[in-house]
Write a protein that binds this DNA or RNA. Structure first.
Length: 580
RNA sequence: GCACCCAUAGCUCAGCUGGAUAGAGCGCUGCCCUCCGAAGGCAGAGGUCGCAGGUUCGAAUCCUGCUGGGUGCGCCA
């Protein structure tokens, strides 16, 4: 139930009637007609820009259209008043019962309140994290994991059919390095001293992999040439790393639907097939790239390579798909992987990348545009860095000094819920500060705490009511006489609740889950303000002597709790029943 | 050199894909509270939305050009 959509539909009906009556030319495009909350509550409950938007295409003055529209809207029982204001805004006042109905709707729908069919069942693939399987996830991966997962939740809530997917980069040189690093730990497990050469992965997490390799292979590969063990060690170690990464993700509450392997694309003809498709469009050719201007690499020499004509789809230069030694570049399997996603029938593709991969956005979009003949839009969300702080002081990370922060560390220090919420307090393309102390602070300026506190307060008052012998289940509360919720302060809170379904659609359309966190902060603020007013005005407290009045007020409290739960569920955060 | 992202109150940031007098928290100033409806409350001051143009009824929002910051730029992923 989205009250704004309901009123917009009413506005469109009236406009339709005006077209039929000849007051407006037929066939006007209504797409830009919006019904929104007014900036200033004094203006009314809702405002529409219909008259201003339609003035030009209909060749009439905005105020004239507004007057006529106001007359028709006023005939509807739901509209108390419709007033023309400013350049042609139409300010609407709604019957209070409409607002009160929002409370009942929230109680009836529970955590599904605000669900939308905006996505109309379109299938969307959200690829995120995709960290190299060479070690545990570190704090840099956390934000991408949270943003991707929350975005997936948000889209699912808004009517998309969502697949969460992780692309395992297990086909490149870095997994050979992993195998060699594991080999040294394997030697170590046999009592030899490991030689962790420059460029190998020095992390302690490989020690147990070495032990496991010893159990698996005994001493068979000791002092044997690399060709004999490399492939086996690589497979073994990457499998171990992926198990670790799955555990890390689970600790954050992230559950992938699909793990896609880069390695699985090799030797199966998939890369060739994807490139063939591009070749058929004349987008693959042999050529020599110009060196980048202004920053020519030291060892630059022109070489002929197999190139993808990405410039024909908006890229700045064409991109190599084959290395000079004839092997594929990383881009080639990436193309094949996205071709695979297209073939699996997704309507929308989303990739969540670290901001340092920003340079690949255009070429990836070019590849998908070419492969899908423009049918499948690819959206790439770049996630900026997280700056760590401890007590307001920047927290330097160093593998060497042992101050390297893993995802595990973060979750163990502050918990998955806090981690997730804080990672969503900024839009994905802005840098984020994460202070280990501040995120646990119990104060107004900690949004996580503030939202949880609001939910806990509601839970507390409901417990209190129940202890006093009241029935506080949703079905009973929904039957309360909600017309008694007529105080301006209560209506202000209800207005905020009514905005929830709208915020879901706005966030989903923009693919920006952080908006949900921001909305929850505002809703929590509204709840706390209302609660505090109860100190001075006892008549506003949720618990009253009159059982009927209490029931109505508790219904409002519970409806607020429902919306907070629904919002937190999208962020993957468990609402708090009490603060301790 | 080129591309992408960012620039909004003293600080940290929101800002509905173009709407009305640009918002919140912190900090600052003033008032109130010490009642377990608790881990404070209320109010106020504070802005040339980086700069300059453009598009239009209307721009923080869209376009162009600058300035400043971040990221990246063939055979690493």
């Amino acid at each position: 139930m989205n009250l704004f959509n309901e009123i917009r539909a009413l506005v469109l009906d009236c406009l339709q009637a005006m077209m039929e009556a000849g007051e407006l030319p037929a066939g006007l495009d209504m797409a830009a007609v919006a019904v929104e909350p007014p900036r200033d509550v004094a203006h009314g409950d809702m405002a529409t820009n219909a008259a201003m938007v339609l003035a030009r295409p209909s060749g009439r003055k905005p105020r004239e259209i507004a007057e006529a529209l106001a007359g028709r809207l006023g005939d509807d029982a739901r509209i108390l008043s419709a007033e023309v204001a400013g350049p042609g805004f139409l300010n609407l006042r709604l019957a209070p019962s409409l607002w009160q109905g929002v409370v009942a709707a929230a109680l009836a729908a529970g955590r599904d309140f605000g669900r939308s069919d905006l996505g109309a069942g379109r299938r969307v693939n959200v690829e995120f994290v995709s960290a190299n399987p060479t070690g545990p996830m570190h704090v840099g991966h956390v934000r991408g994991a949270v943003v991707g997962d929350a975005l997936a939740c948000l889209l699912a809530f808004a009517g998309w059919q969502v697949t969460r997917e992780y692309y395992i980069n297990d086909g490149g040189a870095q997994v050979d390095v992993l195998a060699r690093s594991a080999y040294e730990r394997y030697r170590e497990a046999h009592g030899l001293s490991p030689e962790i050469a420059e460029g190998l992965y020095p992390g302690d997490y490989l020690i147990e992999v070495g032990e496991a390799l010893k159990v698996e292979f005994g001493d068979r590969f000791l002092n044997r040439p690399e060709e004999e063990w490399l492939a086996a060690f690589r497979d073994f170690a990457t499998e171990r790393m992926m198990a670790m990464i799955r555990d890390d993700l689970a600790a954050l509450g992230v559950q992938m639907d699909v793990y896609a392997s880069e390695k699985a694309l090799y030797g199966t003809g998939k890369i060739e097939a994807a490139l063939k498709r591009l070749r058929e469009q004349g987008l693959i050719y042999e050529g020599v790239l110009e060196p980048p201007k202004g920053k020519t690499p030291e060892d630059w020499e022109p070489r002929e390579q197999t190139l993808f004509r990405s410039t024909s789809h908006g890229d700045d230069v064409d991109r190599p798909v084959k290395k000079s030694d004839g092997g594929w570049t990383y881009f080639a399997p990436d193309i094949a992987y996205h071709w695979d996603k297209i073939e699996r029938g997704f309507d929308d593709l989303i990739d969540v990348f670290g901001a340092d991969h920003g340079g690949y956005v255009k070429r990836m979009k070019a590849a998908v545009a070419a492969l899908s003949a423009g049918r499948v839009p690819l959206e790439i969300k770049l996630v900026q860095l997280v700056k760590l702080y401890k007590d307001g002081v920047p927290f330097k990370m160093s593998k060497r000094a042992g101050t390297f922060v893993t995802l595990r560390d973060v979750v163990e220090m502050v918990g998955a819920d806090v981690t997730r919420f804080v990672m969503l307090t900024r839009k994905n393309d802005a840098p984020l500060d994460f202070d280990f102390d501040k995120v646990l602070e119990q104060s107004r300026d900690n949004p996580v705490w503030y939202v949880q506190y609001a939910h806990a307060r509601i839970a507390s008052v409901l417990r209190k009511a129940e202890a006093a012998g009241m029935a506080v289940d949703d079905a009973t509360l929904a039957r309360a006489d909600l017309a008694r919720l007529d105080h301006p302060a209560e209506l202000a809170l209800i207005r905020r609740l009514a905005d929830w379904p709208r915020q879901v659609e706005i966030a989903a359309r923009a693919q920006e889950p952080h908006r949900i966190a921001a909305y929850l902060g505002e809703l929590a603020s509204e709840l706390h303000t209302h609660w505090n007013r109860g100190n001075d005005e006892p008549g506003l407290r949720f618990l009253q002597d009159d059982a009927g009045v209490s029931a109505a007020k508790l219904a409002l409290a519970r409806a607020t709790g429902v919306v907070i739960s629904a919002g937190l569920a999208i962020l993957g955060v468990v609402p708090a029943e009490e603060m301790r």
